[in-house]
Design a protein around this nucleic acid. Structure first.
Lengths: 174, 174
DNA sequence: CTTGGTGCAAACAATTTGCAAGCGC
DNA sequence: GCGCTTGCAAATTGTTTGCACCAAG
């Protein structure tokens, strides 16, 4: 299914979009910014700023946390990345270009995040926006609960409460 | 509409519920815990831990932040208080007993939080839970945008970005 | 009187900021 | 070269923890 091809294609595309966004805003096209965007689009999970920072370090990039945060904010502002709060004081991010809008179900036991899509969300946004005279720009819908696997584990007496999911792999990128 | 009467009645009720919850859990009924619960139920807004702490101080209570946080967690665990994250790294709370489930629209300009209710949310929870084999326990749906007032102000060139809303009034109690 | 709860302050974790040096334009 | 960006570390912010004392059961 040519997934790799599509990935490279996608990356070229988002780098371009970002480049244009920077130019339009009179912002500088630094290698750090592009490197961060590229690494984000090579991942397929939800991640936090620290994980991305570690990831960049593992790949032998020379970046600081400040730049990671700075760039993430830029990317959010041009809609290439989405920022979430899944109930904790820790911002989670995910790439968003080329994906259809979706929401999240979060397992309170293992921390797994599953995406879903329901057209009724849009209907609610439209209707509530009109009703409250709010100009809705975006939303966040999170369903919290226990996933099927964890329910089984819990029934068998195993409890892992909040195990970390999606840790970064050690550096092989030399 | 006898709002005051109802408020006193409601407060008696929640104090009772909390008392039972503490007893059932083998926890102590301290004056601080009841005082915090009572103050929460005399407020009608969304507030953060610090605001509640200041509020208690203004009312001449002798409480520490630690006790405020501790008690808030207790109250959340027995469903007398709900905890929210409105997109920032700052937990917001609101009383929840006697209110029907609702969600929130947040103005990104003035910070105003408006509540709304839509039955489709429950439908989504049910359907997605079944679909993903998740046992959904709770959810959070936040719509972000600009409220009518702010839109007008912005059109007139006034921008207040993130003005603080619902600050605590100075102490008049005593 | 036993032990959990408290106030206080120090510790922590996530994020932001200040500043000197570096590099895109 | 000008000044936005960077790396680094220190500062801030929200929340948690450690500890000596207090008071509920």
């Amino acid at each position: 299914m040519a997934a790799i091809r599509n990935e490279e294609e996608l990356i070229r595309q988002v780098l371009n979009i970002f480049s244009g966004h920077l130019e339009r805003g009179g912002l500088r096209r630094t290698p750090e910014r592009f490197a961060i965007l590229e690494e984000i689009y090579r991942r397929n999970d939800h991640f936090d700023a620290e994980a991305l920072y570690i990831h960049m370090k593992n790949r032998n990039y020379r970046v600081s946390r400040a730049t990671v945060y700075n760039t993430l904010e830029l990317l959010v502002s041009c809609d290439l990345v989405k920022k979430h709060q899944f109930g904790k004081n820790l911002a989670q991010y995910e790439k968003s270009f080329g994906y259809k809008q979706h929401d999240h179900a979060i397992c309170g036991n293992c921390g797994k995040v599953v995406e879903f899509c329901d057209p009724r969300v849009q209907q609610i946004k439209d209707m509530v926006g009109e009703l409250l005279n709010f100009q809705i720009t975006h939303h966040s819908l999170n369903l919290y609960g226990i996933c099927g696997n964890c329910r089984k584990e819990i029934e068998m007496g195993i409890v892992r409460n909040q195990a970390k999911v999606a840790v970064d792999e050690p550096g092989w990128g030399d």
